[in-house]
């Protein structure tokens, strides 16, 4: 990983489907860039869901997606989203 990339703004986009989330916190804990935190709001099932508090730090690595047991979150490279 090169150092220069950090300064070029967000490379990735994180997407959250709050309705599937069961609030386990795996994505928040294991996001290598510290993008996520629990939000204050609840989803319909009463779980606190994650929100992107530092979206600009997202690298689109999708580790959140790999960890999420509920298929409720995923990261993607920005260029892929546009394409």
């Amino acid at each position: 990983m090169s150092d220069g990339k950090k300064s070029r703004g967000p490379r990735g986009v994180v997407t959250i489907n709050a309705e599937l989330c069961k609030g386990c916190g795996f994505c928040i804990e294991f996001c290598p860039s510290g993008v996520l935190a629990f939000s204050d709001t609840f989803n319909d099932k009463g779980y606190h869901t994650p929100q992107a508090v530092r979206p600009e730090a997202c690298t689109g690595c999708d580790l959140c997606g790999a960890y999420c047991p509920d298929f409720a979150i995923f990261g993607m490279l920005k260029e892929k989203v546009v394409a």
């Binding site: 599937l20 069961k22 386990c24 997606g65 790999a66 047991p69 509920d70 298929f71």
Partner: peptide, 24 residues
């Protein structure tokens, strides 16, 4: 979510508890 194409989304949410490792 790109994984959705491999899942039966018409059956979501699944029955596994919060924090269960099965989804992972």
């Amino acid at each position: 979510n790109p994984v959705n194409q491999y899942l039966r989304m018409d059956r979501m949410p699944h029955i596994w508890c919060s924090g269960c490792g099965l989804g992972t």
